[in-house]
Write a protein that binds this DNA or RNA. Structure first.
Lengths: 233, 233
DNA sequence: TTATATTTGTGTTTTAGAACATAGTTCTAT
DNA sequence: ATAGAACTATGTTCTAAAACACAAATATAA
């Protein structure tokens, strides 16, 4: 490649999921069309109402997909970790984006033109099934989320989010600290509550010795308890 | 066919969406594997935790897909009208069902083995894209639903459901009566509220001359007003 | 038909969580 | 280095909607 990027990225390993399903010809086509972009912390990746043009694959960093609802109150719909694909749903649905995406922290994203993806999967059953499976899994999660967010109480929703963050981004070396530092506001918009409620409930959890907090660092002390709170709502 | 069913059903016209994408060979395979089943009012079509075996296509009747949430409180996730496909997500996600389906009223359903569907779409880009599009549209709706159900107030949620029912099942000949008669409980579980609240809010709408009710028959008088209530939450 | 269950309707009470107010703290940019 | 902005924290008030309780009306079955 023309050396425009500082680091050299090996598409074949970074895109391994998809890469191994392609023919040589498709691979070279992909190599010449894919572009690597970098986003700074909090930078927008795409916006509600934009028209979807790229399949995006997150190589590095953390991304949030969010929606602004009634009265501008925004809600995090899902979060993306490396290596996951995003930004393609609207294109397949023949819609504009109904969500926005932004970088939680500095990100490296591979952009692949959707026309190319569509062309590939028309002739490649494995690839088609790969997308069908991703969409099916996400739809199941979305259905579950509707019930969780509407029927669980504040404590249950926050507990669930903490577990979700742990399972998405994992823990630091100490085996307890969440490997992502979110603002209380983001934690709230992930759990469908106001910032005050997130703060308050978080301190309750601290008092009950379920977690400890140090600024944005959250350490999970009693995961079993957290899971129970999440389960019973 | 062996005359097991009372009525003769023409698959080619009933399944037209996917039928026209198939080769002659695929069509005859489909014809010999598809089964038509009838369900009585309120009968279960599939159950949470069952393993998904069939792509289902609703030929006649009305179906609800629901989920039982925290404390057994059930919630309607989506509703199906003729001719729509359902029951396939879990298979593609390699999961058991996380929802249940039952008949609002007497139904005719065509069951197509999922293995056959998967085999077809592996070699048929158009068919694959058809499923990708359905899933993408449904995922967008689910995302929207999360925001609607969590951020709108009772009036907004009920108004939205009424409009949704109108757009899904249409109106009767009078151009005003919803073409589906739901119990207040179902209306509540579609709008994420208690039955009492559904009843109360419905009577409020009547007092405000937005709708009239006669048992389970709901007549929409002032759709514009209903849409406004839904919009502002 | 009568009896029993289910659905509908309404008033009252209780409560979870939003809204608001205010202040301390920590980033971040110039 | 310092000002301003953004974030965090906590107490107080207010309100929408759930929970409860009961009665009336319908449907369903024996």
């Amino acid at each position: 490649m023309s050396g425009k990027n500082k680091e050299v990225i090996d598409l074949s390993s970074s895109l391994s999921d998809i890469w191994k399903m392609l023919t040589d010809e498709e691979r070279s086509l992909l190599r010449s069309s894919a572009r690597i972009l970098h986003f700074k912390k909090n930078e927008l990746i795409y916006l509600d109402d934009d028209s979807p043009r790229y399949l995006m694959c997150l190589f590095k960093g953390k991304v949030k997909i969010f929606k602004s609802g009634v009265g501008g109150r925004s809600q995090i719909i899902r979060i993306i970790r490396p290596v996951q694909y995003f930004g393609y749903r609207a294109y397949f649905a023949r819609e504009s984006y109904v969500t926005s995406a932004s970088a939680f922290e500095a990100c490296t994203v591979c952009m692949i033109p959707m026309e190319l993806v569509e062309q590939f999967l028309r002739n490649n059953g494995d690839l088609a099934l790969f997308f069908i499976q991703m969409l099916s899994v996400d739809l199941g999660i979305a259905d579950q989320r509707v019930v969780n967010l509407t029927q669980k109480h504040v404590r249950g929703r926050l507990a669930e989010s903490l577990i979700f963050l742990k399972e998405s981004y994992g823990l630091e070396e100490d085996g307890a600290t969440l490997n992502i530092y979110l603002a209380r506001e983001d934690l709230a918009s992930l759990s469908n509550m106001t910032t005050s409620n997130a703060i308050r409930t978080l301190s309750n959890f601290v008092n009950e010795r379920i977690i400890t907090i140090d600024g944005r660092k959250i350490k999970i002390i009693d995961e079993e308890r957290l899971r129970k709170i999440s389960r019973i709502g």
